[in-house]
Amino acid sequence: MATDPIHQFQISRIVPIEVGSLDVSFTNSSLFMVATVAAVTLFLVLATRGRGLVPTRLQSMAEISYEFVANMLRDAAGTEGMRFFPLVFSLFMFVLFANLFGMFPYFFTVMSHLIVTFALAMLVIGTVVIYGFMRHGLKFLGLFVPHGVPGYLIPLVTVIEIISFLSRPISLSIRLFANMLAGHITLKVFAGFVVSLSALGAVGIGGAILPLAMTIALTALEFLVAFLQAYVFAVLTCMYLNDAIHPGH
């Protein structure tokens, strides 16, 4: 049914593949992941094809996105953090393009599935933990013991710090997932009102103007959210990476 607001999140197999008992079919979700990667790659490769000293419009956009993420990372994690630049840039572009693809009617929103955002969040936290221990050894655990805390408070603060650290992948993934999911459901619900109201005749068409206006406004808002959530994801990644590089508070 077209007006079911949940239907848009349905995953369907395009090319069924099974490895053992595991279903790893190429689905519509996979298709849009591939499309996202293709779009990002195409954008960046085409934009930098001319290698112009004076950039074209496209090249300028690519440069702006590069500088945007680079400044974000440098501000949060310092110059040392720039070693993670490809990771942060890939995450930002992947999430941004996936979200923007989701704004097309009938397109699938990859980030509306918790498992995807959680996997990306675990990638970030995994990088932080692995790099933190590789770089600082056990001193990385100093992350959980902030400086300048009176001795008797240290156990309490440490527990709080550990809980806050453990909740990071959850908050990071749920924030992105919930924003995309809720936004698309709301959009679909209001758009559904337009259809069902206008089926009621002249009065209904008049009454449908309000949800139509809401749909238009929500579409604009969703474009903002699509960018904002990619930005928030990237900024938080930068801040967590900063903890891996400088574990002392």
Binding site: S29, S30, V37, L44, T48, A62, L87
Partner: peptide
């Protein structure tokens, strides 16, 4: 579809990371 999503995410994001870090970002 968890398995499928995770696998394809790993493939696509891995490919993106590889392409960006080897081609696009050095060029930019």
């Amino acid at each position: 579809f968890y398995g499928s999503q995770l696998l394809w995410l790993a493939i696509t994001f891995g490919a993106l990371y590889y392409i960006l870090s080897k081609v696009a970002l050095p060029r930019l």
